[in-house]
């Protein structure tokens, strides 16, 4: 769960991009780094091997200050998708506050997606989180490729699932911010309940989202894809 530091007046949140190997998790983080402009934005730290597969994780820190002058930090992690790195995935997943599941839309990737999603569900339970209440957004990435499932097929298959579905093409950035915003929307109620963001910190849902993605709350520029 979120890490609350009363003395430093700091709330640190952990958001994890999960999914099969090569589905575009790292690409999502890279695009977010480009697309978002919160008060505070760190560099992406990538712990990768030479062949550019994620070894442990990628990390992108974002942050802003609330009207109550608290620092809210969001640490975005990716997990290594390779089956062998399950222990790493579990470690990254532990204490997560929200999840994005990045699926690969290509028809050939159906089994990988399914196995990874099942692995996510198992690991969420293993690290002591509640899969039923954990904020989660499902992203179907690589929409630009041929031989992908149609959006209709995907929506049909995921019809009964309670999570928001976002179509994306992380390479171009399409759907990347929307995915993230959907996650923030799901995350806010939990944070508000636990930390009284609205009452104590003067941060309602819209200003929370605006602050994280970097839209001026005063000018109220509309949300949506930048493309």
């Amino acid at each position: 769960m979120a890490d609350l530091d009363e003395t430093a007046r700091k709330l640190t949140l952990k958001l994890v991009y999960y999914g099969p190997a090569m589905s575009g998790k790292t690409t999502n983080l890279m695009r977010l780094h480009d697309l978002l402009s919160p008060d505070l934005k760190g560099e992406i730290m990538t712990l990768e091997t030479q062949n550019d597969r994620t070894l442990f994780f990628d990390l992108l820190p974002l942050g802003f200050r609330t009207p109550s002058d608290w620092l809210i930090k969001l640490k975005l992690y990716t997990v290594p998708g390779q089956v062998a790195h399950d222990a790493t995935r579990k470690a990254v997943l532990s204490r997560a506050d929200g999840l994005v599941f990045v699926a690969d839309s290509q028809r050939s990737q159906g089994i990988n997606n399914a196995e990874s999603f099942q692995n996510l569900e198992e690991n969420v339970r293993r690290v002591g989180l509640d899969f039923g209440t954990l904020p989660l957004v499902v992203q179907f990435n690589k929409r630009d490729l041929p031989n992908v499932l149609t959006e209709e097929e995907i929506r049909q298959r995921w019809f009964a699932a309670p999570w928001p579905l976002v179509m994306a093409s992380a390479l171009s950035g399409m759907g990347v911010r929307e995915t993230f915003v959907k996650l923030l929307e799901a995350l806010y109620p939990v944070l508000d309940k636990n930390f009284s963001l609205s009452k104590v910190h003067g941060t309602d849902a819209q200003s929370f989202i605006n602050a994280v993605i970097g839209i001026n709350a005063v000018t109220g520029a509309p949300l949506g894809n930048s493309h």
Binding site: M45, L47, F56, F57, A87, T88, A91
Partner: peptide, 24 residues
Amino acid sequence: MRSGARYFMASEMHLEVVKTDYEE
């Protein structure tokens, strides 16, 4: 500092993974 953080995170993660693998 950044390179120190990288090293620190990688080694801590490594320890954690080794520990869970060992426990498993």
